[in-house]
Design a protein around this nucleic acid. Structure first.
Lengths: 309, 309
DNA sequence: CATGTTCTCTGACTCTAGTCAGAGAACATG
DNA sequence: CATGTTCTCTGACTAGAGTCAGAGAACATG
């Protein structure tokens, strides 16, 4: 896989953690423990529940409690019981806290500026473009795809988003009652399954598989959130769905799609799907595709090394 | 300057320090304080003097001493007086230490692989290329240019490298005795000055200015180490030299150069130098350039925000 | 309304990281 | 060879970051 990509990546890691990581802390920890600054930042201008902060920063409750006490002593925040649930406590920034947070914001800007400052305009443009590419591709690696219960709230969110999107994109809108129905039970093993893609715990895509024994399996509900496009999420969902189909004995997968979904159609073609005559009478479909699944285990386990946590 | 470059840079900082910075520590600190791992790494297979390690890691002597004691307790290193100077102590890795260091190396590779793993070949190539660009441009910001005593060892290194390089590149070689001489005293104020560019304390370039009162100032000895090319160092040296010339009252700067130095010639042209008739009888010169200096203080202080430390 | 759960807080720790002052050996130099 | 300098080490600290086990209040539920 390498040849040789590892060397440059390591070199990048070294340079960037030195150049940015170290500076970052230096800039943010000014006169206050870094932890406190992070919390101050995370509270945000609108305030936040202690519980939410703890979840976002993944921090021990005792530790957070002490950090908040420190910020309270500095008169930067005020902690009060949340109005609706008196177990949870709500943190708000005081006037001074907002000022201090703005200062952190300013510092963060300044750090960014200090990276751009020694460069001329052309170099700046190149740097920012390359940074965008790196960020996008590194983010792609954070997307995790797993089998999900279609009844979960994350799954329902994705499916609803899927329907909302096709409704807005199809020429005729989309009425679920007019389409071939897929019961939720069809998306649970052994009848089928639903995959969910998440980025930092947020659902950003889905894809479903409906199994028909050794008959061709069907792909349904393939959707990627607008915020996660360009990360290769769709392609990975597709590959994982095929993997599951193969694992369950299918040798062919097929799907139908609407002519408006051009990126999807492009994805299917480039993933080896070929157009075939209509194999169902789905009223919203214009194209039908199928793919012969290759010998087991070629695309499987796309990223064995990605740390999960 | 922004419009809006700051936003993307901040976003990059956040994403990358999270994705790489955090993982980096997780990977390297395995079962040992991070500091100890860094020291283990820095010793290298060939061993090193304690003094050298301290300089490289910029670490307190007491702290380092304790870290070394810890590594000794783990039987990973052996510390002995250096053979030539019994004040300094030399550290060498034991067999176990080498194994452990190789393990760190492996982990670092693995981290790099984990970043590439979720991507397909095209994405990998794009990522690595963009990383290279980011690294190069961030490194460019670390180059510091300052006035230097021409007698210092760093200055002598640069001047010797300069002569060695032109000797190997000129069609006829280069014999200092045949060229117009420049005495070291001419490169010290008030007669002139020498600028040195350093990257992480290592000299990577130089450029000299010879002043002639209100007559045109002369630029000499402009050189950039092969390892630092493409970072815009030459352009910055040029700009700084012009700045000093202007500060000292010159309104015109000029220089002569050899036809083999094509990148330099290209640099001069793109920096606003125009070719003029020979103004001296330098036997190695084929081209003579000059530049009218604009109103004071336009290019000056190219990077006021770069943290110096 | 008894019981279990959720949420926050306190107390009591551990580990890393890092600083500072001085001691002692080895070396450099007039 | 006396004196100052360099280098490393020890002792004595401080502070940040984080963990763990409960306690107590508020809520949820049969």
């Amino acid at each position: 896989m390498e040849g040789d990509l590892i060397g440059p990546v390591r070199s990048f890691n070294r340079t960037v953690t030195q150049r940015i990581g170290a500076l970052n802390e230096e800039y943010l920890a000014q006169s206050r423990p870094l932890g406190a600054s992070r919390v101050l930042w995370e509270i945000g201008d609108g305030g936040a529940d202690v519980r939410a902060i703890r979840a976002r920063l993944d921090i021990d409750s005792g530790y957070l409690s002490r950090l908040l006490r420190g910020l309270e002593d500095e008169r930067l925040v005020r902690v009060q019981p949340a109005p609706d649930d008196h177990r949870v406590r709500a943190v708000r920034l005081t006037e001074a806290g907002r000022t201090e947070r703005a200062e952190l914001d300013r510092r963060s800007d300044q750090l960014a500026r200090s990276l751009l400052a020694p460069l001329n305009d052309r170099q700046r443009a190149r740097l920012v473009e390359a940074m965008g590419t790196v960020e996008q591709l590194l983010t792609a690696g954070l997307v995790e795809i797993e089998v999900e219960d279609p009844a979960s709230s994350a799954a329902r969110f994705c499916l609803q988003s899927y329907f909302a999107e096709i409704h807005s994109r199809f020429d005729t809108g989309f009425d679920p009652d007019a389409s071939i129905p897929v019961a939720a039970a069809d998306l649970v093993e052994p009848a089928g399954l639903l995959l969910l893609a998440r980025l930092r715990h947020e659902p950003v895509g889905c894809g479903a598989l409906k199994l028909h024994g050794t008959e061709p399996a069907e792909l349904k509900r393939i959707w990627v959130a607008a915020s996660a496009r360009g990360l290769g999420v769709g392609r990975r969902i597709l590959a994982e769905l095929e993997h599951h189909a193969r694992r369950r004995g299918a040798t062919v997968v097929r799907l139908d799609t609407n002519r408006r979904l051009t990126e999807a159609i492009h994805l299917y073609r480039s993933a080896g799907y070929v157009e075939v005559p209509a194999f169902n009478d789905e009223p919203y479909a214009h194209h039908w595709f199928e793919k012969q699944l290759a010998t087991p285990r070629t695309t499987a386990q796309a990223h064995p090394l990605t740390p999960t946590r």
